[in-house]
């Protein structure tokens, strides 16, 4: 598991944690059954507060990306290929929405953006 936290980012730290881990799960870098470090240990290692890690883990669990076994810890959940694809789409859609509003602010039409996209993709 790779995590890089930025203190100057506008995003709260728990969100950075959540986003980075969920991306790694959805890209298949963390396989199902992978055991996440215990909350308090992760907090010490990442130098963030315990509650921050707890919140990130809870958010991952709420979205069904990880599950908790009492007394044993948290593990990456198993997602069906369909579900995986769906979640991956949601992930890039979220980023697209941000990017699109940026293109719009410069007054580009969808055709113009499409041409540019084809050039650089």
């Amino acid at each position: 598991m790779n995590i890089a936290i930025s203190n100057t980012s506008d995003k709260p730290i728990y969100q950075q944690l959540f986003e980075q881990i969920s991306a790694q799960i959805l890209k298949g870098e963390l396989e199902s059954g992978y055991s996440l470090p215990p909350i308090r240990q992760a907090a010490t290692e990442l130098r963030v507060s315990i509650i921050t890690v707890k919140k990130a883990w809870e958010e991952l669990e709420r979205l069904g990306l990880i599950y908790t076994v009492t007394g044993k810890g948290c593990f990456v959940a198993e997602l069906s290929p369909d579900e995986m694809l769906q979640r991956r789409k949601e992930m890039i859609l979220k980023q697209m929405m941000i990017d699109i509003s940026y293109y719009k602010s410069f007054g580009f039409t969808i055709e113009e953006v499409y041409e540019l996209l084809k050039e650089v993709y």
């Binding site: 203190n7 308090r40 240990q41 907090a43 010490t44 130098r47 963030v48 507060s49 315990i50 509650i51």
Partner: peptide, 29 residues
Amino acid sequence: DIFQELVEDGEISILFSTHITSDLEKCAD
């Protein structure tokens, strides 16, 4: 670092006062 290690097993609690707020941005709950 030491503070965080101390609370890691959940037995010890720490209250510390400071006016150096950057100390808290990371480790305080």
